[in-house]
């Protein structure tokens, strides 16, 4: 079998997904035995022009990280779709918007104003903002258009597989690379490198009856390292989050924030969590329920921490 041609790209991302690929450590040499890298801005020096010169479908597998924040992200997504046989939405940002997707809580102009005018480290008395075209003496310069809203990869192109996580763990990355190299591909649209169980199914904390009289913020409570975090009053998203991360946050006494997204069949993780969380509220009167619920800080920003652009109400139009 000839070697696979592999590409990896980041749109609105942090590079953590690329580093997750490198976290397979010395196995990267095994990867080099089965695949040639033909585009990967983090690690190798191919340019957009090189990708444009490839024949359609030249790339066997493209791992796409990051949300679609501007016209360049969308343009490269379309380019890579055209040049790739298999396109994988890799990581929470590409799948559902991820952390950059929190920007869908804000207005485009408010973001620009905060960044280019108000920020403490900025002096911009002439109120200069980025523009898509700018004429300089020598010619015209172009910048991408900053979209009104953050989009998911699947909003702009057809996606073959989804690999969740912020970032996906190195062991899962390696497992998926092996599957790809074997040529034994799962059905299109499948979520790979994860389980279809919930975090709670894999969590080893002791669970009893879930009844919460008070919700706590982490600094208000000494967390019992053995007991279920939700039962202790922390808004852990384990009940509605796909397993596969190895329970990293919960094993460090931090409540799950849902980066692996919902399990198959759930269309809106946040809505599912509203249901799950409300059902553990132990109130005898509506007033008591109100009090307990009012202690949950920033519910929307927590329940949709990694998936606001993929949610029903904030999906980009």
């Amino acid at each position: 079998m000839s070697k696979l041609k592999l590409a990896s790209y980041w749109a609105a991302a942090c590079g953590g997904c690329d580093v997750a690929i490198l976290d397979i450590n010395e196995k990267i040499i095994d990867l080099a035995n089965v695949a040639d890298i033909v585009f990967w801005p983090l690690a190798v020096d191919f340019k957009y022009a090189d990708v444009e010169a490839y024949a359609d479908g030249y790339i066997d597998v493209c791992l796409f990280h990051g949300a679609i924040r501007n016209s360049e992200g969308e343009h490269i997504a379309k380019l890579l779709r055209q040049k790739s046989k298999v396109l994988v939405a890799f990581g929470s940002c590409a799948i559902a918007g991820g952390i950059p997707g929190l920007a869908n809580f804000k207005r485009r102009d408010d973001i620009l104003d905060r960044v280019y005018i108000q920020s403490d480290s900025t002096q911009n008395p002439e109120r200069v903002f980025p523009v898509t075209r700018y004429q300089v003496l020598e010619g015209e310069l172009e910048l991408p258009e900053f979209y009104k809203e953050v989009k998911c990869l699947a909003d702009v192109v057809d996606v073959d597989y989804f690999m969740p996580g912020c970032p996906p763990t190195a062991t899962q990355v390696w497992a998926v690379i092996q599957v790809i190299a074997s040529g034994n591909l799962p059905p299109k649209g499948a979520f790979v490198g994860c389980s279809n169980k919930t975090m709670c199914d894999e969590c080893e904390r002791e669970k009893t009856e879930k009844k919460v009289k008070k919700f706590y913020r982490p600094h208000e409570i000494m967390v019992d390292p053995k007991k279920c975090l939700l039962e202790q009053g922390l808004t852990c998203m384990g009940p509605v989050t796909r397993a596969g991360c190895g329970n990293q946050c919960t094993s460090a006494n931090l409540p799950c924030r849902g980066c692996y997204g919902p399990v198959d069949g759930v269309i809106d993780q946040g809505a599912k969590y509203i249901s799950a969380l409300a059902s553990v509220v132990d109130a005898d009167t509506p007033e008591e329920a109100d009090r307990i619920i009012s202690e949950i800080v920033d519910p929307a920003g927590t329940f949709y921490r990694y998936g606001l652009p993929g949610s029903l109400l904030r999906r980009a139009k």
Partner: peptide, 17 residues
């Protein structure tokens, strides 16, 4: 009822009147 109250809180943050 509890679901409704929590949902209202989330919807308010999402800008739903």
């Amino acid at each position: 009822m509890r679901r409704y109250r929590l949902m209202k809180k989330v919807l308010e943050q999402l800008g739903v009147e």
